[in-house]
Nucleic acid binder design. Structure first.
Length: 554
RNA sequence: GGCCCCGUAGCUCAGCUGGAUAGAGCAACCGCCUCCUAAGCGGUAGGUCACAGAUUCGAAUUCUGUCGGGGCCGCCA
Protein backbone atom coordinates (compact mmCIF):
# COMPACT_ATOMS: atom_id res chain seq x y z
CA UNK A 1 0.00 0.00 0.00
CA UNK A 2 1.08 3.52 -0.74
CA UNK A 3 0.81 4.53 2.88
CA UNK A 4 3.36 1.85 3.77
CA UNK A 5 5.78 3.09 1.14
CA UNK A 6 5.61 6.52 2.67
CA UNK A 7 6.06 5.03 6.12
CA UNK A 8 9.29 3.29 5.05
CA UNK A 9 10.51 6.49 3.53
CA UNK A 10 9.91 8.43 6.72
CA UNK A 11 11.58 5.72 8.80
CA UNK A 12 14.61 6.02 6.50
CA UNK A 13 14.69 9.78 6.92
CA UNK A 14 14.54 9.31 10.66
CA UNK A 15 17.57 7.03 10.58
CA UNK A 16 19.42 9.55 8.44
CA UNK A 17 18.72 12.22 11.04
CA UNK A 18 19.97 9.99 13.84
CA UNK A 19 23.14 9.29 11.88
CA UNK A 20 23.99 12.88 11.11
CA UNK A 21 23.01 13.92 14.64
CA UNK A 22 20.30 16.35 13.69
CA UNK A 23 18.09 14.26 15.95
CA UNK A 24 19.16 12.45 19.12
CA UNK A 25 16.53 10.35 20.82
CA UNK A 26 17.20 7.31 18.64
CA UNK A 27 13.92 5.69 19.62
CA UNK A 28 11.69 5.27 16.63
CA UNK A 29 8.16 6.14 17.61
CA UNK A 30 5.15 4.71 15.83
CA UNK A 31 4.84 6.61 12.59
CA UNK A 32 1.26 7.68 12.17
CA UNK A 33 0.11 8.68 8.73
CA UNK A 34 -3.34 9.93 7.95
CA UNK A 35 -5.31 11.40 5.14
CA UNK A 36 -5.96 15.06 5.94
CA UNK A 37 -9.53 16.25 5.82
CA UNK A 38 -8.51 19.27 3.82
CA UNK A 39 -7.04 18.44 0.39
CA UNK A 40 -4.91 21.57 0.57
CA UNK A 41 -2.93 19.78 3.24
CA UNK A 42 -1.71 17.26 0.72
CA UNK A 43 -2.31 13.55 0.25
CA UNK A 44 -0.99 12.43 3.59
CA UNK A 45 0.06 14.04 6.83
CA UNK A 46 2.11 12.89 9.76
CA UNK A 47 2.17 14.17 13.31
CA UNK A 48 5.57 12.56 13.93
CA UNK A 49 7.37 15.81 14.73
CA UNK A 50 4.81 16.64 17.40
CA UNK A 51 4.93 13.26 19.07
CA UNK A 52 8.74 13.41 19.17
CA UNK A 53 8.90 16.93 20.56
CA UNK A 54 9.11 15.89 24.18
CA UNK A 55 11.81 13.25 23.84
CA UNK A 56 13.86 15.45 21.50
CA UNK A 57 13.43 18.53 23.66
CA UNK A 58 13.01 20.53 20.51
CA UNK A 59 10.08 22.29 18.96
CA UNK A 60 8.01 20.24 16.54
CA UNK A 61 8.95 22.60 13.74
CA UNK A 62 12.69 22.08 14.24
CA UNK A 63 12.21 18.32 14.16
CA UNK A 64 10.05 18.59 11.07
CA UNK A 65 12.74 20.67 9.35
CA UNK A 66 15.32 17.99 9.95
CA UNK A 67 13.05 15.25 8.65
CA UNK A 68 12.06 17.19 5.57
CA UNK A 69 15.70 17.83 4.72
CA UNK A 70 16.41 14.12 5.00
CA UNK A 71 13.46 13.35 2.72
CA UNK A 72 14.79 15.64 0.05
CA UNK A 73 15.71 13.14 -2.62
CA UNK A 74 12.59 11.02 -2.51
CA UNK A 75 11.28 10.57 -6.03
CA UNK A 76 7.62 9.90 -5.44
CA UNK A 77 7.02 12.99 -3.33
CA UNK A 78 6.23 16.11 -5.26
CA UNK A 79 5.85 18.36 -2.26
CA UNK A 80 6.64 18.18 1.44
CA UNK A 81 5.50 20.97 3.69
CA UNK A 82 5.55 21.80 7.34
CA UNK A 83 2.27 23.20 8.48
CA UNK A 84 0.26 24.27 11.48
CA UNK A 85 1.59 23.19 14.85
CA UNK A 86 4.14 20.84 13.25
CA UNK A 87 2.37 18.57 10.80
CA UNK A 88 4.38 17.34 7.86
CA UNK A 89 2.21 17.31 4.77
CA UNK A 90 3.08 15.10 1.84
CA UNK A 91 1.93 15.48 -1.71
CA UNK A 92 2.68 12.56 -3.99
CA UNK A 93 3.37 12.75 -7.68
CA UNK A 94 0.56 12.00 -10.11
CA UNK A 95 2.55 9.00 -11.34
CA UNK A 96 2.11 7.27 -7.98
CA UNK A 97 -1.64 7.49 -8.32
CA UNK A 98 -1.51 6.37 -11.91
CA UNK A 99 0.29 3.23 -10.79
CA UNK A 100 -2.70 2.39 -8.64
CA UNK A 101 -4.73 2.03 -11.81
CA UNK A 102 -2.20 -0.40 -13.20
CA UNK A 103 -2.31 -2.38 -10.01
CA UNK A 104 -6.09 -2.57 -10.07
CA UNK A 105 -6.19 -3.59 -13.70
CA UNK A 106 -3.53 -6.23 -13.18
CA UNK A 107 -5.10 -7.69 -10.06
CA UNK A 108 -8.69 -7.46 -11.22
CA UNK A 109 -11.06 -9.14 -8.82
CA UNK A 110 -8.18 -9.79 -6.44
CA UNK A 111 -7.58 -6.09 -5.93
CA UNK A 112 -8.28 -5.26 -2.31
CA UNK A 113 -7.26 -8.64 -0.97
CA UNK A 114 -4.40 -8.73 1.50
CA UNK A 115 -2.59 -11.08 3.85
CA UNK A 116 -2.97 -9.06 7.04
CA UNK A 117 -4.87 -11.92 8.65
CA UNK A 118 -1.96 -14.27 8.00
CA UNK A 119 -4.24 -17.23 7.62
CA UNK A 120 -5.40 -17.03 11.21
CA UNK A 121 -8.24 -19.48 11.75
CA UNK A 122 -11.43 -17.61 12.48
CA UNK A 123 -14.95 -18.82 12.80
CA UNK A 124 -17.95 -16.59 12.43
CA UNK A 125 -21.04 -18.11 13.96
CA UNK A 126 -24.23 -16.34 13.03
CA UNK A 127 -28.00 -16.53 12.62
CA UNK A 128 -28.18 -19.72 14.73
CA UNK A 129 -31.92 -19.18 15.08
CA UNK A 130 -33.86 -21.90 16.87
CA UNK A 131 -35.46 -24.24 14.35
CA UNK A 132 -38.89 -23.56 15.77
CA UNK A 133 -40.11 -21.03 13.26
CA UNK A 134 -39.21 -19.11 10.14
CA UNK A 135 -36.54 -16.42 10.13
CA UNK A 136 -37.72 -12.89 10.67
CA UNK A 137 -36.19 -9.58 9.80
CA UNK A 138 -34.01 -9.40 12.90
CA UNK A 139 -32.36 -12.67 11.90
CA UNK A 140 -31.84 -11.13 8.48
CA UNK A 141 -29.72 -8.36 9.88
CA UNK A 142 -27.64 -10.79 11.89
CA UNK A 143 -27.29 -12.99 8.83
CA UNK A 144 -26.01 -10.24 6.57
CA UNK A 145 -23.75 -8.83 9.24
CA UNK A 146 -22.14 -12.19 9.96
CA UNK A 147 -21.80 -13.02 6.30
CA UNK A 148 -20.22 -9.67 5.48
CA UNK A 149 -17.83 -9.81 8.43
CA UNK A 150 -16.75 -13.23 7.23
CA UNK A 151 -16.32 -12.02 3.66
CA UNK A 152 -14.33 -8.97 4.62
CA UNK A 153 -12.06 -11.01 6.87
CA UNK A 154 -11.49 -13.55 4.14
CA UNK A 155 -10.46 -10.74 1.84
CA UNK A 156 -8.03 -9.55 4.49
CA UNK A 157 -6.34 -12.92 4.58
CA UNK A 158 -8.01 -14.69 7.48
CA UNK A 159 -8.97 -18.32 7.19
CA UNK A 160 -12.67 -17.96 7.84
CA UNK A 161 -15.34 -20.52 8.46
CA UNK A 162 -19.08 -19.74 8.57
CA UNK A 163 -21.15 -21.76 10.97
CA UNK A 164 -24.78 -22.06 12.03
CA UNK A 165 -25.44 -23.46 15.48
CA UNK A 166 -28.70 -25.39 15.61
CA UNK A 167 -30.43 -25.32 18.98
CA UNK A 168 -32.08 -28.66 18.48
CA UNK A 169 -31.93 -29.78 22.09
CA UNK A 170 -33.80 -28.52 25.09
CA UNK A 171 -37.20 -27.25 25.98
CA UNK A 172 -38.09 -25.48 22.81
CA UNK A 173 -38.01 -28.76 20.89
CA UNK A 174 -40.62 -30.13 23.22
CA UNK A 175 -42.71 -27.01 22.88
CA UNK A 176 -42.50 -27.30 19.12
CA UNK A 177 -43.54 -30.95 19.26
CA UNK A 178 -46.43 -30.16 21.56
CA UNK A 179 -47.58 -27.24 19.41
CA UNK A 180 -47.54 -29.47 16.35
CA UNK A 181 -49.30 -32.31 18.11
CA UNK A 182 -52.11 -30.05 19.26
CA UNK A 183 -52.61 -28.57 15.79
CA UNK A 184 -52.44 -32.05 14.40
CA UNK A 185 -55.17 -33.20 16.72
CA UNK A 186 -57.29 -30.31 15.49
CA UNK A 187 -56.74 -31.57 11.93
CA UNK A 188 -57.93 -34.95 13.07
CA UNK A 189 -61.12 -33.37 14.32
CA UNK A 190 -60.33 -33.31 18.00
CA UNK A 191 -61.01 -29.98 19.69
CA UNK A 192 -58.07 -28.72 21.75
CA UNK A 193 -57.28 -25.76 23.93
CA UNK A 194 -54.13 -24.22 22.45
CA UNK A 195 -51.94 -22.90 25.30
CA UNK A 196 -50.40 -19.45 25.20
CA UNK A 197 -46.87 -20.70 25.66
CA UNK A 198 -47.06 -22.81 22.51
CA UNK A 199 -45.94 -21.47 19.16
CA UNK A 200 -48.82 -19.48 17.76
CA UNK A 201 -47.75 -18.96 14.18
CA UNK A 202 -49.71 -20.12 11.18
CA UNK A 203 -46.70 -22.07 9.99
CA UNK A 204 -47.42 -24.58 12.77
CA UNK A 205 -50.89 -25.11 11.37
CA UNK A 206 -49.63 -25.60 7.83
CA UNK A 207 -46.97 -28.01 9.07
CA UNK A 208 -49.58 -30.00 10.97
CA UNK A 209 -51.71 -30.02 7.87
CA UNK A 210 -48.86 -31.41 5.80
CA UNK A 211 -48.26 -34.14 8.35
CA UNK A 212 -51.93 -34.97 8.45
CA UNK A 213 -52.22 -35.13 4.68
CA UNK A 214 -49.10 -37.24 4.31
CA UNK A 215 -49.56 -39.63 7.17
CA UNK A 216 -53.19 -39.47 8.16
CA UNK A 217 -54.07 -40.09 11.79
CA UNK A 218 -51.20 -42.45 12.63
CA UNK A 219 -49.76 -40.20 15.37
CA UNK A 220 -53.08 -40.14 17.22
CA UNK A 221 -52.46 -43.63 18.48
CA UNK A 222 -49.05 -42.86 19.99
CA UNK A 223 -48.35 -42.02 23.58
CA UNK A 224 -48.26 -38.26 24.02
CA UNK A 225 -44.57 -38.08 24.94
CA UNK A 226 -43.55 -40.22 22.00
CA UNK A 227 -45.71 -38.21 19.62
CA UNK A 228 -44.29 -34.95 20.90
CA UNK A 229 -40.77 -36.20 20.39
CA UNK A 230 -41.35 -37.45 16.88
CA UNK A 231 -43.31 -34.41 15.79
CA UNK A 232 -40.75 -32.08 17.37
CA UNK A 233 -37.99 -33.72 15.40
CA UNK A 234 -40.00 -33.77 12.22
CA UNK A 235 -41.06 -30.18 12.65
CA UNK A 236 -37.58 -28.84 13.34
CA UNK A 237 -36.21 -30.74 10.35
CA UNK A 238 -38.81 -29.19 8.09
CA UNK A 239 -38.32 -25.72 9.52
CA UNK A 240 -34.57 -26.02 9.15
CA UNK A 241 -34.96 -26.87 5.50
CA UNK A 242 -37.00 -23.71 5.13
CA UNK A 243 -34.40 -21.64 6.96
CA UNK A 244 -31.69 -23.02 4.74
CA UNK A 245 -33.64 -22.11 1.62
CA UNK A 246 -34.41 -18.62 2.87
CA UNK A 247 -30.77 -17.99 3.65
CA UNK A 248 -29.75 -19.29 0.28
CA UNK A 249 -32.16 -16.91 -1.38
CA UNK A 250 -30.44 -14.26 0.66
CA UNK A 251 -27.08 -15.28 -0.74
CA UNK A 252 -25.89 -16.90 2.46
CA UNK A 253 -24.41 -20.35 2.79
CA UNK A 254 -22.59 -21.93 5.69
CA UNK A 255 -19.55 -24.14 5.79
CA UNK A 256 -21.09 -26.06 8.61
CA UNK A 257 -24.41 -26.54 10.37
CA UNK A 258 -23.62 -27.62 13.90
CA UNK A 259 -26.14 -29.50 15.98
CA UNK A 260 -26.47 -28.89 19.70
CA UNK A 261 -27.96 -32.36 20.04
CA UNK A 262 -24.76 -33.72 18.54
CA UNK A 263 -22.85 -32.35 21.51
CA UNK A 264 -25.01 -34.48 23.79
CA UNK A 265 -24.85 -37.53 21.56
CA UNK A 266 -21.06 -37.48 21.53
CA UNK A 267 -20.91 -36.89 25.26
CA UNK A 268 -19.24 -33.53 24.84
CA UNK A 269 -21.54 -31.70 27.19
CA UNK A 270 -20.79 -34.18 29.95
CA UNK A 271 -17.09 -34.03 29.14
CA UNK A 272 -17.17 -30.26 29.29
CA UNK A 273 -18.81 -30.31 32.69
CA UNK A 274 -16.22 -32.77 33.89
CA UNK A 275 -13.38 -30.62 32.66
CA UNK A 276 -14.72 -27.60 34.50
CA UNK A 277 -15.18 -29.67 37.65
CA UNK A 278 -11.58 -30.92 37.45
CA UNK A 279 -10.37 -27.37 37.23
CA UNK A 280 -12.40 -26.59 40.33
CA UNK A 281 -14.53 -24.09 38.49
CA UNK A 282 -17.87 -25.52 39.58
CA UNK A 283 -19.70 -26.24 42.81
CA UNK A 284 -23.05 -27.66 43.90
CA UNK A 285 -25.67 -25.58 45.65
CA UNK A 286 -29.43 -26.07 46.10
CA UNK A 287 -29.20 -29.28 44.14
CA UNK A 288 -27.82 -27.53 41.08
CA UNK A 289 -24.31 -27.28 39.61
CA UNK A 290 -22.89 -23.78 39.24
CA UNK A 291 -20.02 -22.28 37.31
CA UNK A 292 -17.91 -19.79 39.27
CA UNK A 293 -18.16 -17.18 36.56
CA UNK A 294 -17.85 -14.43 39.19
CA UNK A 295 -14.18 -15.41 39.53
CA UNK A 296 -13.76 -14.15 35.98
CA UNK A 297 -15.69 -10.93 36.02
CA UNK A 298 -19.32 -12.03 35.75
CA UNK A 299 -21.70 -10.46 38.26
CA UNK A 300 -23.15 -13.74 39.45
CA UNK A 301 -22.46 -17.44 39.15
CA UNK A 302 -24.40 -19.38 36.55
CA UNK A 303 -26.20 -22.68 36.63
CA UNK A 304 -24.89 -25.48 34.43
CA UNK A 305 -27.06 -28.32 35.67
CA UNK A 306 -30.49 -27.61 37.07
CA UNK A 307 -31.75 -29.28 40.23
CA UNK A 308 -34.00 -31.48 38.09
CA UNK A 309 -30.92 -32.87 36.36
CA UNK A 310 -31.35 -31.04 33.05
CA UNK A 311 -28.38 -29.14 31.71
CA UNK A 312 -28.88 -25.52 30.76
CA UNK A 313 -28.33 -23.85 27.43
CA UNK A 314 -25.24 -22.35 29.04
CA UNK A 315 -23.80 -25.84 29.60
CA UNK A 316 -24.25 -26.62 25.92
CA UNK A 317 -22.59 -23.38 25.01
CA UNK A 318 -19.61 -24.15 27.20
CA UNK A 319 -19.24 -27.51 25.48
CA UNK A 320 -19.76 -25.92 22.08
CA UNK A 321 -17.04 -23.34 22.52
CA UNK A 322 -14.67 -25.93 23.91
CA UNK A 323 -15.36 -28.01 20.86
CA UNK A 324 -14.62 -25.08 18.57
CA UNK A 325 -11.23 -24.45 20.12
CA UNK A 326 -10.64 -28.18 19.93
CA UNK A 327 -11.00 -27.89 16.18
CA UNK A 328 -8.02 -25.57 16.07
CA UNK A 329 -9.98 -22.38 15.62
CA UNK A 330 -8.07 -19.43 17.03
CA UNK A 331 -10.62 -16.65 17.07
CA UNK A 332 -14.34 -17.16 17.53
CA UNK A 333 -16.72 -14.46 16.45
CA UNK A 334 -20.29 -14.86 17.63
CA UNK A 335 -22.99 -12.67 16.15
CA UNK A 336 -25.84 -12.26 18.63
CA UNK A 337 -28.92 -10.16 19.02
CA UNK A 338 -28.37 -7.25 21.36
CA UNK A 339 -30.83 -8.76 23.82
CA UNK A 340 -28.18 -11.38 24.57
CA UNK A 341 -25.64 -8.87 25.76
CA UNK A 342 -25.89 -10.14 29.33
CA UNK A 343 -24.53 -13.38 28.00
CA UNK A 344 -21.25 -11.88 26.83
CA UNK A 345 -19.57 -11.60 30.22
CA UNK A 346 -20.55 -15.10 31.12
CA UNK A 347 -19.08 -16.59 27.95
CA UNK A 348 -15.95 -14.49 28.33
CA UNK A 349 -15.70 -15.89 31.84
CA UNK A 350 -15.79 -19.37 30.38
CA UNK A 351 -12.99 -18.52 27.95
CA UNK A 352 -10.87 -17.14 30.78
CA UNK A 353 -11.80 -20.07 32.98
CA UNK A 354 -10.37 -22.57 30.52
CA UNK A 355 -7.19 -20.54 30.41
CA UNK A 356 -7.53 -18.75 27.10
CA UNK A 357 -7.31 -15.10 26.20
CA UNK A 358 -10.83 -13.64 26.52
CA UNK A 359 -10.24 -11.86 23.22
CA UNK A 360 -10.28 -15.24 21.51
CA UNK A 361 -14.02 -14.80 21.69
CA UNK A 362 -15.39 -11.71 20.00
CA UNK A 363 -19.08 -11.01 20.22
CA UNK A 364 -20.83 -8.76 17.74
CA UNK A 365 -24.09 -7.54 19.18
CA UNK A 366 -26.55 -6.60 16.50
CA UNK A 367 -29.15 -4.08 17.55
CA UNK A 368 -32.85 -4.27 16.84
CA UNK A 369 -34.47 -3.76 13.48
CA UNK A 370 -37.72 -1.80 13.36
CA UNK A 371 -39.78 -2.71 10.36
CA UNK A 372 -41.64 0.22 8.84
CA UNK A 373 -43.91 0.82 5.90
CA UNK A 374 -44.05 4.41 4.71
CA UNK A 375 -42.68 5.48 8.07
CA UNK A 376 -45.34 3.60 10.02
CA UNK A 377 -44.27 0.73 12.29
CA UNK A 378 -45.32 -2.72 11.14
CA UNK A 379 -46.68 -4.76 14.04
CA UNK A 380 -44.32 -7.57 14.92
CA UNK A 381 -45.27 -9.98 17.62
CA UNK A 382 -43.69 -13.38 17.83
CA UNK A 383 -46.05 -14.18 20.62
CA UNK A 384 -49.18 -13.87 18.54
CA UNK A 385 -47.36 -15.31 15.56
CA UNK A 386 -48.03 -12.20 13.51
CA UNK A 387 -44.78 -11.23 11.94
CA UNK A 388 -43.31 -10.59 8.56
CA UNK A 389 -40.77 -13.24 7.69
CA UNK A 390 -37.36 -12.62 6.22
CA UNK A 391 -38.53 -14.48 3.15
CA UNK A 392 -41.35 -12.03 2.63
CA UNK A 393 -38.93 -9.13 2.90
CA UNK A 394 -36.54 -10.67 0.37
CA UNK A 395 -39.39 -11.45 -2.00
CA UNK A 396 -40.78 -7.95 -1.67
CA UNK A 397 -37.68 -5.76 -1.83
CA UNK A 398 -35.10 -8.09 -3.31
CA UNK A 399 -31.84 -9.54 -2.08
CA UNK A 400 -29.56 -6.69 -3.08
CA UNK A 401 -31.53 -3.86 -1.54
CA UNK A 402 -32.18 -5.83 1.67
CA UNK A 403 -28.54 -6.74 2.14
CA UNK A 404 -27.27 -3.28 1.43
CA UNK A 405 -29.76 -1.60 3.75
CA UNK A 406 -28.94 -4.01 6.56
CA UNK A 407 -25.30 -3.02 6.26
CA UNK A 408 -25.99 0.67 6.10
CA UNK A 409 -25.65 1.09 9.86
CA UNK A 410 -23.08 0.05 12.39
CA UNK A 411 -24.21 -3.17 14.03
CA UNK A 412 -24.59 -1.48 17.40
CA UNK A 413 -26.92 1.15 16.04
CA UNK A 414 -30.63 0.35 15.85
CA UNK A 415 -31.93 0.17 12.31
CA UNK A 416 -35.16 1.32 10.73
CA UNK A 417 -36.03 -0.79 7.74
CA UNK A 418 -38.69 0.80 5.61
CA UNK A 419 -40.20 -1.65 3.13
CA UNK A 420 -41.52 1.03 0.78
CA UNK A 421 -38.28 2.97 0.81
CA UNK A 422 -36.32 -0.19 0.19
CA UNK A 423 -38.37 -0.95 -2.89
CA UNK A 424 -38.35 2.55 -4.28
CA UNK A 425 -36.11 2.78 -7.31
CA UNK A 426 -35.11 6.32 -6.73
CA UNK A 427 -32.39 8.43 -5.33
CA UNK A 428 -33.52 7.88 -1.75
CA UNK A 429 -32.28 4.36 -2.20
CA UNK A 430 -28.52 4.13 -1.74
CA UNK A 431 -28.30 0.64 -3.23
CA UNK A 432 -29.18 1.77 -6.71
CA UNK A 433 -26.95 4.76 -6.42
CA UNK A 434 -23.91 2.51 -6.15
CA UNK A 435 -25.10 -0.10 -8.61
CA UNK A 436 -25.92 2.63 -11.09
CA UNK A 437 -22.34 3.84 -11.02
CA UNK A 438 -21.22 0.36 -12.02
CA UNK A 439 -23.84 0.09 -14.76
CA UNK A 440 -22.78 3.46 -16.12
CA UNK A 441 -19.18 2.38 -16.57
CA UNK A 442 -20.39 -0.77 -18.28
CA UNK A 443 -22.44 1.39 -20.58
CA UNK A 444 -19.39 3.46 -21.44
CA UNK A 445 -17.58 0.23 -22.20
CA UNK A 446 -20.30 -0.84 -24.58
CA UNK A 447 -20.08 2.46 -26.39
CA UNK A 448 -16.30 2.27 -26.48
CA UNK A 449 -16.51 -1.14 -28.07
CA UNK A 450 -18.86 0.20 -30.69
CA UNK A 451 -16.49 3.05 -31.46
CA UNK A 452 -13.54 0.72 -31.62
CA UNK A 453 -11.83 2.20 -28.58
CA UNK A 454 -9.75 -0.45 -26.86
CA UNK A 455 -9.16 -0.56 -23.13
CA UNK A 456 -5.38 -0.41 -22.57
CA UNK A 457 -3.54 -3.30 -20.98
CA UNK A 458 -1.91 -2.84 -17.56
CA UNK A 459 1.21 -0.66 -17.66
CA UNK A 460 0.59 0.04 -21.35
CA UNK A 461 -1.61 3.07 -20.95
CA UNK A 462 -0.32 6.60 -21.23
CA UNK A 463 -1.89 8.12 -18.15
CA UNK A 464 -0.04 11.41 -18.21
CA UNK A 465 -3.20 13.19 -19.30
CA UNK A 466 -5.03 12.18 -16.13
CA UNK A 467 -4.19 15.35 -14.27
CA UNK A 468 -7.56 16.86 -13.39
CA UNK A 469 -8.06 17.18 -9.64
CA UNK A 470 -11.12 14.94 -9.77
CA UNK A 471 -9.18 12.30 -11.68
CA UNK A 472 -6.40 12.21 -9.14
CA UNK A 473 -8.96 12.29 -6.37
CA UNK A 474 -10.68 9.25 -7.86
CA UNK A 475 -7.38 7.39 -8.10
CA UNK A 476 -6.70 8.21 -4.45
CA UNK A 477 -10.08 6.90 -3.46
CA UNK A 478 -9.34 3.68 -5.35
CA UNK A 479 -6.01 3.43 -3.56
CA UNK A 480 -7.84 3.56 -0.26
CA UNK A 481 -9.89 0.47 -0.99
CA UNK A 482 -7.45 -2.15 0.37
CA UNK A 483 -7.01 -0.35 3.66
CA UNK A 484 -10.77 0.07 3.93
CA UNK A 485 -11.12 -3.69 3.76
CA UNK A 486 -8.43 -4.19 6.37
CA UNK A 487 -10.11 -1.70 8.69
CA UNK A 488 -13.49 -3.33 8.20
CA UNK A 489 -12.00 -6.77 8.85
CA UNK A 490 -10.00 -5.90 11.94
CA UNK A 491 -12.84 -3.99 13.53
CA UNK A 492 -15.58 -6.33 12.34
CA UNK A 493 -17.32 -3.37 10.77
CA UNK A 494 -18.58 -4.18 7.29
CA UNK A 495 -20.53 -0.92 7.16
CA UNK A 496 -17.24 0.80 6.39
CA UNK A 497 -17.29 -0.84 2.98
CA UNK A 498 -20.78 0.48 2.39
CA UNK A 499 -19.71 4.03 3.17
CA UNK A 500 -16.64 3.62 1.04
CA UNK A 501 -18.82 2.52 -1.87
CA UNK A 502 -21.13 5.47 -1.52
CA UNK A 503 -18.20 7.85 -1.51
CA UNK A 504 -16.64 6.25 -4.58
CA UNK A 505 -19.93 6.20 -6.45
CA UNK A 506 -20.51 9.83 -5.57
CA UNK A 507 -17.11 10.88 -6.89
CA UNK A 508 -17.68 8.89 -10.04
CA UNK A 509 -21.14 10.31 -10.76
CA UNK A 510 -19.78 13.78 -10.30
CA UNK A 511 -16.88 13.10 -12.65
CA UNK A 512 -19.18 11.54 -15.20
CA UNK A 513 -21.32 14.64 -15.30
CA UNK A 514 -18.39 16.96 -15.61
CA UNK A 515 -16.12 15.13 -18.05
CA UNK A 516 -16.74 12.93 -21.04
CA UNK A 517 -14.81 9.70 -21.14
CA UNK A 518 -15.22 9.00 -24.82
CA UNK A 519 -14.16 12.13 -26.61
CA UNK A 520 -12.08 13.10 -29.60
CA UNK A 521 -8.54 12.95 -28.33
CA UNK A 522 -7.63 9.30 -28.28
CA UNK A 523 -4.95 9.49 -25.60
CA UNK A 524 -7.36 11.16 -23.18
CA UNK A 525 -10.13 8.76 -24.10
CA UNK A 526 -7.92 5.75 -23.45
CA UNK A 527 -6.64 7.08 -20.15
CA UNK A 528 -10.11 7.95 -18.91
CA UNK A 529 -11.47 4.62 -20.03
CA UNK A 530 -8.68 3.04 -18.02
CA UNK A 531 -9.59 5.12 -14.99
CA UNK A 532 -13.32 4.39 -15.07
CA UNK A 533 -12.63 0.72 -15.49
CA UNK A 534 -10.50 0.83 -12.38
CA UNK A 535 -13.55 2.29 -10.68
CA UNK A 536 -15.73 -0.43 -12.14
CA UNK A 537 -13.44 -3.16 -10.81
CA UNK A 538 -13.40 -1.73 -7.30
CA UNK A 539 -17.16 -1.18 -7.27
CA UNK A 540 -17.70 -4.75 -8.39
CA UNK A 541 -15.21 -6.16 -5.89
CA UNK A 542 -16.71 -4.29 -2.96
CA UNK A 543 -20.31 -5.06 -3.91
CA UNK A 544 -19.35 -8.67 -4.36
CA UNK A 545 -17.90 -8.78 -0.84
CA UNK A 546 -21.19 -7.52 0.51
CA UNK A 547 -23.13 -10.08 -1.50
CA UNK A 548 -24.75 -7.46 -3.69
CA UNK A 549 -24.84 -7.80 -7.48
CA UNK A 550 -23.00 -5.35 -9.70
CA UNK A 551 -25.35 -5.11 -12.69
CA UNK A 552 -24.11 -4.19 -16.17
CA UNK A 553 -27.38 -2.52 -17.07
CA UNK A 554 -30.12 -0.87 -15.06
C1' G B 1 -30.20 -1.47 42.15
C1' G B 2 -26.43 -3.59 38.43
C1' C B 3 -24.83 -3.98 33.31
C1' C B 4 -24.78 -2.86 27.74
C1' C B 5 -25.75 0.49 23.52
C1' C B 6 -26.91 5.35 22.00
C1' G B 7 -27.12 11.13 22.32
C1' U B 8 -23.46 14.95 16.05
C1' A B 9 -27.76 19.69 10.85
C1' G B 10 -35.27 19.72 10.81
C1' C B 11 -35.06 13.79 10.02
C1' U B 12 -31.83 9.19 9.40
C1' C B 13 -26.83 8.53 10.27
C1' A B 14 -21.03 8.57 9.06
C1' G B 15 -16.69 10.48 11.32
C1' C B 16 -10.81 6.17 9.17
C1' U B 17 -9.00 4.01 17.00
C1' G B 18 -6.57 11.86 19.47
C1' G B 19 -5.43 16.08 14.58
C1' A B 20 -5.87 21.37 11.07
C1' U B 21 -12.17 24.96 8.85
C1' A B 22 -17.15 18.52 11.96
C1' G B 23 -19.38 15.34 6.82
C1' A B 24 -23.19 12.50 3.70
C1' G B 25 -28.19 11.20 2.37
C1' C B 26 -33.23 12.71 2.92
C1' A B 27 -36.54 16.91 3.55
C1' A B 28 -36.50 22.72 1.80
C1' C B 29 -35.09 26.33 -1.99
C1' C B 30 -32.57 27.52 -7.00
C1' G B 31 -30.52 25.47 -11.38
C1' C B 32 -28.63 21.34 -15.30
C1' C B 33 -30.58 16.24 -20.54
C1' U B 34 -29.18 18.90 -29.14
C1' C B 35 -23.57 15.35 -25.68
C1' C B 36 -20.99 8.13 -23.03
C1' U B 37 -27.89 5.80 -18.77
C1' A B 38 -31.30 12.36 -15.12
C1' A B 39 -31.80 5.56 -10.64
C1' G B 40 -27.46 11.31 -12.22
C1' C B 41 -25.02 16.34 -11.34
C1' G B 42 -24.17 21.58 -9.46
C1' G B 43 -25.55 25.41 -5.93
C1' U B 44 -28.00 27.79 -1.36
C1' A B 45 -29.38 27.10 3.63
C1' G B 46 -28.83 24.33 8.01
C1' G B 47 -24.15 22.84 14.21
C1' U B 48 -22.51 25.26 21.55
C1' C B 49 -20.89 17.25 18.48
C1' A B 50 -26.62 16.38 25.34
C1' C B 51 -24.15 18.91 29.77
C1' A B 52 -19.97 19.67 33.31
C1' G B 53 -15.17 18.58 34.65
C1' A B 54 -10.30 15.77 33.70
C1' U B 55 -6.08 14.08 30.66
C1' U B 56 -2.29 17.24 26.56
C1' C B 57 0.68 20.75 22.05
C1' G B 58 -4.64 19.28 20.38
C1' A B 59 -10.90 15.96 22.33
C1' A B 60 -17.05 14.68 18.57
C1' U B 61 -13.27 10.74 19.55
C1' U B 62 -10.09 8.78 25.93
C1' C B 63 -11.54 8.92 31.56
C1' U B 64 -15.13 10.51 35.57
C1' G B 65 -19.81 12.47 36.83
C1' U B 66 -24.85 14.34 35.56
C1' C B 67 -29.18 14.40 32.37
C1' G B 68 -32.05 12.05 28.42
C1' G B 69 -33.54 7.64 25.02
C1' G B 70 -33.45 2.28 24.19
C1' G B 71 -32.23 -2.67 25.84
C1' C B 72 -30.91 -6.74 29.30
C1' C B 73 -30.68 -8.72 34.21
C1' G B 74 -34.46 -17.09 34.85
C1' C B 75 -32.28 -23.52 37.76
C1' C B 76 -35.90 -20.30 29.64
C1' A B 77 -33.44 -20.70 25.01
Amino acid sequence: MIKDRLRWQIADALQTCFKNKTLHSCTVPEIQIEVPGNPEHGDFASNLAMTMARAERKSPRQIAEALVTALDDCDFLSKVEIAGPGFINFTLTAAVWHQVLDEITAKGEKYGFSQIGQGRKVQVEFVSANPTGPLHIGHGRGAVTGDAVAAVMQAAGYDVQREYYINDAGNQMRTLGLSLLLRYREMCGQPVAFPEDCYQGDYIISLAKEVHEAEGTRYMGLEEDAAIKILGQLGSDRILVGIREDLKAFGITFDQWFSEQGLFDRGEVAAGLELLAEKGLTYDKDGATWFRTTDFGDDKDRVLVRSNGDTTYFASDVAYHLEKFGRGLETLIDVWGADHHGYVQRMKAVIKGIGRNPDDLQVILVQLVSLLREGEPVAMSTRSGEFITLREVIDEVGKDASRFLFLLRRADSPLDFDLELAKRQSNDNPVYYVQYAHARVCSINRNALEQGVVLPKPDAADLSCLILPEELSLAKQLARYPETIVGAAQNHEPHRVVYYLQELASQFHSYYNRQRVLEDDSATTQARLYLVNGIRIVLANALNLLGVDAPERM
